[in-house]
Amino acid sequence: MPDCRREQLLFVILLVIDAALLKSFVPFARLRRQPTIVVDSMANGAALVLAHWRGAPTPAALRDDTSAGSVLRALRAPAPPGLDAAAVTANHFDVDGFLGVWSLLHPALALPHERLLRLAATLGDFRELDWTNPLADHALQLVCWLNAREQELFYPPFGAPAVRRREDEASAEKFAWFLPRFAAVLENPETGRAAWEPEYRRIKAAGAVIQSPRTQIRRYPEIGLVVVETPESLPYYALFGPTAGYDMVLSLYGGQRYEFEYKYTTWVDLESRPTLPRLPLHELAATLNARETTPHRWTFDGITDTGPLLRLAGSTLTKVQRYADPDQRPIPASSIRPAELEREVVAFFRAKYAIIPPRRYWTWAEIRAAGESAKVVQSSD
């Protein structure tokens, strides 16, 4: 059968499946009123969970690096138990979760665009984008459209408390707006250009800086660290572009301004590769504070934060600020020189991770225990 006929037949079959499933989105609070598929979240009583969250009961055959990836696996699987549930929900709105929910509601449109949707979900959650991928521009446009419209019409990520609402409740309004409108931009990005173009151009310009001689990138694969030395703070979608396969980023900006971050890749269960556990940063912060001569102090977030930062604190950042791009928050100057800071960070993690082999599917209890064992070993050296 010619390829074009085969593709046409597949599309007709998918349309029949799409019509037969007749799924609908329901707010998270209503998930127990009917059999419900839970995406990018966890909940007791779900008919099926499709999430990459650490410890989520996603069926082993459907595990994926992103929750949208698990949804796409489920749509291609031979009738996974629970996939026939008519309701779909999530307890928050973000790019990955939205793409997973939308794909369950529109499998006939989602599966032909699987590679693109996977790329967009990875960009949305891990902020990684392979600029050489022929679909990279399209994925970036989709994500920028989602981000821009969310900011314009609703509240920013992690901003629900500011409007005195719970995220699982308030995010339902975002799903209600985006679900019927996304297909048009997926199939023809030009329909959403007015919304996505400003952020898209900003990211592309920052990506050019990352790929230029102005930026130096050093990788330490034995500890999963990438050091990005670049003149100015940059948007995450550009900054984290060259960090795929790594879980920690040390950003060295001009003027001796720095940030260290554990990527979201170590908050979730990655399917594609093993990882090292997050470690508490008390000792590293104490070492840096002993060397710091400015009035500021090195501070850090806990290991269960979605993206823990270690940085010189001029003021306390809100969760919204920490999730926002580095070029949208103040980064004070340090007295520590870049090469010295890099040596301290690399030495700290080399010593700690020397006794911890990487693996998949860490529990939070195991991550905490690994941190305690690394502390004991170092204190006895």
Rank of each mutant, 00 (worst) to 15 (best):
V88Q: 11
F28I: 03
T275P: 00
V226D: 03
A354W: 04
D96P: 10
V226P: 04
W145K: 09
P78H: 06
V95C: 12
T304Y: 03
P112T: 10
D18G: 11
W362H: 11
E271F: 10
T230I: 00
Q141H: 00
V71C: 07
E222V: 08
T318W: 00
F300I: 03
I13E: 02
S70M: 01
G245A: 10
A87C: 14
I336G: 09
F300W: 12
P242G: 05
G255S: 10
L119K: 14
A136K: 06
S103D: 05
R76G: 09
G307L: 06
Q151V: 04
L111V: 10
T243N: 08
P295H: 06
Y200F: 15
I367T: 15
E152L: 12
D64R: 12
Q34S: 14
L317S: 06
N91W: 05
Q328L: 14
A205L: 09
H282E: 15
A176S: 12
K263G: 15
P157V: 05
R54G: 11
A43N: 11
A313K: 09
R5Q: 04
T89S: 15
A90P: 00
T191V: 14
E169V: 15
L111I: 12
V227H: 01
R257K: 15
L252A: 03
T287S: 15
R218T: 12
R291K: 13
P213H: 10
E229M: 01
L21W: 15
E152V: 07
Y361C: 06
D40F: 08
R219G: 00
P156A: 04
G82D: 01
L116V: 08
R219V: 01
I37R: 07
L276Y: 00
S380A: 13
E114Y: 04
L21R: 15
A148E: 14
A121E: 06
T266W: 04
Y200E: 07
A354R: 14
D84Q: 12
P107K: 08
S70V: 11
T318G: 02
R322S: 10
Q151I: 03
F260L: 14
Q34F: 05
L146N: 02
T293P: 03
S379P: 01
F28K: 10
Q216W: 05
Y361I: 03
A136S: 12
S41C: 13
S41I: 13
L310W: 04
D305Y: 11
W53P: 02
W298I: 08
F178D: 01
G224P: 08
L140F: 08
P161Q: 01
D65M: 02
P156Q: 04
S233K: 02
H106Q: 12
D137G: 14
F11R: 15
K23W: 03
H52Y: 00
T318C: 02
S67L: 02
D130M: 05
L288V: 06
P35S: 10
V377D: 09
L109I: 11
L117V: 12
Q328D: 13
L109T: 14
D269F: 09
I336P: 02
E187W: 00
